[in-house]
Design a protein around this nucleic acid. Structure first.
Lengths: 342, 342
DNA sequence: TTGAAAGCGCTACCAA
DNA sequence: TTGGTAGCGCTTTCAA
């Protein structure tokens, strides 16, 4: 069936509208585009609008983009899709973009293909700018981004240089989590840290120490173990920590918290009677773990919307100033934390 | 800074390449496009290719699309991003599309906005066709899809009418799961069903009955409860089922399995010593539950790639025939299933 | 084998 | 207030 390959319908063009309204294309264009200074008689305007509506006219974005060299589309690049953090950042970016008349093109990059992905996004799909979300460890990013010569805003990551970025205040979040634990009487609080050397990992670690400080608890480095961002990492780190007999654990992510909980269960320790567990970031999976995990919410959706707004404003010639780290949201107290055993 | 709004770089156009190579644009176009019948002298060809490479020429997809009325881009529409099933379907679709020279535009739709989303995708972003993934319950889909007048392929859903669709054989998967349970000696097997009236839910239910049949176990409708696709649904359904004293549970999804496990824990029942639990679909979260959940893998990535291939082939004027339901993958035996208590 | 030229649908400048 | 028109960068038909 050749039919299927044909354009879906006899598209209505601007010329059709102009003809039907008895005006010139340029006039129709002015009206339909909603040009700022509407130097068009109201009567004419209405007629054109009506005709366009009747004909169900829709501008061809390809033609428009070719002419104006703008697509009014921004792209968002995330390391992985099935991660509630990024999913919600996408949601936020989409909402903000739509409000500003832009649409959002979602893309993810398989590890190791960042350069290609950026190039494809900006060249094949024609975006006016890019939102780039990142895990801690992509150093490649930098060169790829400048090579693509496309305006961008970073999410959850800072890069030396002038680029705008929007980050979460994970230091404050970690501090908050520790405060919850110390308020419950815990003093032997372990930390399952993120990837060594990573920016966010360091932030969380600092927050952990802040929290200890706040409660006048001495920092003991034997209570900290690197878990990274996987369940296996959580398992390994927790196993290593077991002999230190912590009464509470602050995990850098939900995933590592899950790994830690597995170890705790297997060691015959009760949660939270023997050991309390708290994780950073909130997502449905927190409620699916057993016992349900206490977490600190992070404003990931807001991160997306702020980043999109920043990008679009700079696309429009403004030079928005840098934004501060986004403060953590509420602490969601579920079943995994309780009073320190005595 | 106005600078940021300017086009990122002085783009190299086809005319530039042609001029530098001392040929006409049309000749350069023929070569660069890799036209089938390369009626161009080899020497000329090489020269053009070299110049294009030196200049780092990249065709402007907007101009090309305007001229050819094709974007070589297909869109994929999913109900939610942070769902491993859809995330992996996207991966599959992306791979297959890339292989066939297409790029994939990812989009998700907030509930209730399907029509708008489809319209925007096909009109604003110009896709040649759409891959539409769906939960059981979107009946709206149908009208929205035909209103958009865009070629499409359905995933995980059948719609009366001629549209192509690719589905998973969840009936076979459920049967497989039950077989695992009966082989372990279980006879009182409960089923946490999907949304009532849904296509997939019915398939899984049939598979459950098939499995019972295979083992010569009589079907007892009191052992079936509708859980839908949420953890809360799993909780409710499992609570209702408790009094029936099942020794095993087949949950329609990982999420409802998680809810069920929570209930079991709270009821003081051990998994798997007292009750075995198995879920359909495999994803990292299965390993994060406690105990780690036994699952049946589903070829979701393949679903994506098959769907993309089907769509692109029909875009190219073929009329591919319908494909059979994709058979389930392996059963992943983790810690949540064990011999029936005696 | 190569070149000339029309035109995809739109915007934006200039003239009326 | 409105219309004419050039041209964005490319493909494609036709002619040389």
């Amino acid at each position: 069936m050749k039919a299927k390959a044909a354009p879906p319908s006899p598209r209505v063009t601007l010329a059709d509208v102009a003809r039907a309204a008895g005006v010139d294309m340029s006039t129709a264009s002015r009206v339909l585009r909603g040009e700022a200074t509407q130097r068009v008689r109201e009567e004419t305007r209405d007629r054109i609008l009506k005709v366009a509506d009747d004909l169900q006219y829709l501008a061809n974005p390809l033609a428009r983009g070719l002419r104006t060299a703008r697509t009014y589309t921004i792209g968002i690049l995330v390391p992985q899709l099935d991660n509630p953090v990024f999913a919600s950042a996408i949601r936020g970016a989409e909402l903000a973009a739509a409000q500003l008349g832009y649409s959002l093109l979602i893309s993810h990059r398989e590890p190791g293909t960042t350069g290609t992905t950026i190039a494809k996004l900006s060249q094949t799909n024609r975006v006016d700018g890019l939102l780039v979300a990142s895990l801690d460890d992509d150093e490649v990013l930098r060169t790829d981004l400048i090579a693509a010569r496309v305006p961008y805003v970073l999410m959850n990551r800072v890069l030396p240089g002038a680029a705008l970025s929007v980050i979460l205040d994970s230091r404050a979040a970690a501090r908050l989590a520790v405060a919850h634990l110390t308020a419950l009487g815990h003093t032997r609080i372990a930390h399952l840290a993120g990837r060594e050397g990573g920016f966010n990992a360091r932030q969380r670690f600092e927050g952990y120490r802040d929290g200890l400080n706040d409660a006048g608890i001495a920092y003991d480095k034997r209570l900290v173990s690197v878990a990274g961002y996987t369940a296996e990492g959580g398992v390994m780190a927790m196993q290593a920590l077991l002999r230190q007999r912590p009464t509470a654990v602050l995990a850098a992510t939900l995933v590592s918290a899950a790994g830690a909980m597995t170890v705790l269960h297997e060691a015959g320790l009760r949660i939270p009677e023997d050991v309390s567990v708290i994780g950073l970031h909130d997502a449905p999976v927190a409620g699916m773990l057993y016992p349900a995990l206490t977490t600190v919410m992070m404003p990931t959706e807001e991160m997306g919307s702020v980043a999109a707004t920043l990008l679009i404003r700079s696309l429009n010639g403004e030079s928005p100033e840098a934004v501060l780290p986004l403060p953590p949201g509420a602490l969601i107290s579920r079943a995994s934390t309780g009073p320190a055993p005595r």
